[in-house]
Nucleic acid binder design. Structure first.
Lengths: 167, 167
DNA sequence: CTTGGAATGTCAACAATACTGACATAAAGT
DNA sequence: ACTTTATGTCAGTATTGTTGACATTCCAAG
């Protein structure tokens, strides 16, 4: 509750931006921005029999082609039962292909089919339009700040996993 | 899909920060950061019979004491049936008081009781700890950028309603 | 080669949160 | 008087998450 270790502050003197009021504002900003952030794909998904969970699965399968089920579970942070439901639908509907692992045959490597890629493209296009406008109007310096704060807001283990996504 | 109206850019020349790759990174950052953002209150709520929906209601009732049900519905963006369920629980459990409006007797003005304030405090304390650390480590400039980008990400109507919260 | 454990899949039950549609009541506005 | 608004409530349904239990497959160690 207290101000804590000012000594570790890389930014020194002025900590007025850490008032409860500013923090509260940040909290609400997260809530409203996330609502906007998800609204465009959500609208599109209503035309399908899919929901946000399908979007997330399709996104990360596209992001890391050949990802294993366990890897995907770690990233999404849900139970295998929960993921399995949406994954089964996506496989049954021909959007995702589940191939037996080559090195470890217990594992399943997940890939998007063309149909899956098409949906992913449609969803991420919509999401990027909003993100691009937000970035553009805020400018590159603001985007750097946005990234810095959001990275700090993540759980440390997640930060590592995201690094893994990039590589 | 194209780069769009560069002419309207207030930042002119360098638009390299708007690559699809950067946008994708921003999208995933939103997902993981929001997960972190909600995780602390979620853990606390497990000790109660409440969920994230109760947290949101309690938060905004605390934020704008005496808020009407319709106002709260607009802010939360859910149906009255959905809100009513959690609101009834909170009233029954003595965390929220629902008073008949003075000027318009159809309206209900919502207030937190001491018990409600206590829960709100516990939840927002936890959420602020993370937010404060994220802000502090990123610095005031980054926080300004964070705010700018997230405000741009909100729906325009929501931006107005948030202004209403401040006043 | 057997056994242990890891990775995966599946079934069932359940909980939280959202939705739609329908209907009721009270009070405000015209 | 009539309409609209604000609120509450009931019923049904969908999505997404959870636990718990159990089966299968298969790598790896003994």
């Amino acid at each position: 509750m207290q101000d804590g270790n000012v000594t570790s502050g890389n930014h020194g003197e002025d900590l007025l931006f850490l008032t409860d009021d500013n923090l509260l504002q940040g909290i609400e900003l997260m809530f409203f921005a996330y609502k906007g952030f998800t609204s465009d794909p959500d609208k599109i998904l209503q035309n399908y029999t899919y929901g946000r969970a399908h979007h997330r699965a399709v996104h990360f399968i596209n992001r890391k082609r050949g990802i294993t089920v366990n890897n995907l579970l770690d990233i999404l942070g849900v139970t295998k039962q929960s993921l399995n439901r949406v994954l089964r639908q996506l496989v049954d509907d021909g959007l995702v292909e589940s191939r037996i692992g080559t090195t470890d045959r217990r594992q399943r490597n997940l890939y998007l089919t063309q149909k899956g890629k098409d949906l992913e493209q449609e969803l991420s296009d919509a999401q990027r339009v909003r993100m691009r406008a937000a970035f553009r109007d805020a400018g590159p310096d603001a985007v750097r700040g946005f990234r810095a704060v959001l990275e700090n807001m993540m759980d440390p283990e997640m930060r590592k996993r995201v690094q893994g996504l990039k590589g």
